[in-house]
């Protein structure tokens, strides 16, 4: 999965969970849990949406690797390729 696709996956998952976030104007290095105010339930829903989109499990130990937009895009790029082909 390339970066553009990965970004689309992350943006879509976030849009579902936190429609009030304007991804275009959102600092991609802000912590989603602290900065964007996702509570634990929102964050879990976001993880679930990403996991389902890339058809790969995301263990709890990996949660921190999806805590900012940039981190998540990198994670999904890596994981998505592994799972995809």
């Amino acid at each position: 999965m390339n970066q553009t696709q990965a970004r689309a996956v992350v943006v879509e998952a976030l849009a579902d969970v936190a429609p009030e976030i304007d991804v275009e104007e959102f600092d991609p290095d802000t912590s989603l849990r602290d900065g964007a105010d996702l509570d634990s339930m929102d964050f879990l829903a976001y993880i679930a949406a990403v996991s389902e989109a890339i058809e790969a499990d995301i263990p709890e130990d990996d949660y921190a690797r999806l805590d900012t937009l940039n981190l998540a895009v990198a994670y999904v790029t890596e994981k998505g390729s592994a799972a995809g082909s």
Binding site: S40, M41, L44, A48, S51, E52, D57, I58, P59
Partner: peptide, 17 residues
Amino acid sequence: LRDFNAGRKPRERVLPA
């Protein structure tokens, strides 16, 4: 709880809440 969640898909995981 971590063990409980380990084998579960994200949507089936339980939060401390």
